[in-house]
């Protein structure tokens, strides 16, 4: 999976905000606000990466158990999927 290039991450007011750019900006003006770990996953998804690879990166970075990492990742993926930001 990989994130669409039609969205970019901006760092406004100590927040990570993903906004639409290019021609997609005409169709929808969606933006989502991410926390720091969301921004970390966002960066990973700039290049083609598998679910399991993301999971292992999160566990490595944040030193958390697999179940917590999994539920956090699933929550993140649900949001970006719903916003049409994910290519699978």
């Amino acid at each position: 999976m990989k994130l669409s290039k039609e969205f970019v991450l901006r760092n406004f007011a100590d927040k990570y905000i993903a906004v639409t750019v290019n021609d997609s900006a005409d169709e929808q003006n969606a933006f989502i606000t991410l926390n720091k770990s969301g921004a970390f996953v966002w960066e990973l998804l700039q290049n083609e990466i598998s679910y399991d690879e993301i999971l292992s990166e999160i566990i490595k970075k944040y030193d958390i158990d697999a179940n917590t990492a999994k539920s956090d990742l699933d929550e993140f993926l649900t949001i970006v999927r719903k916003a049409g930001m994910l290519h699978e």
């Binding site: 901006r10 406004f12 007011a13 906004v19 639409t20 750019v21 005409d26 003006n29 933006f31 606000t33």
Partner: peptide
Amino acid sequence: GYYSATVH
């Protein structure tokens, strides 16, 4: 309290 978007 805020909004963000790309300009048109």
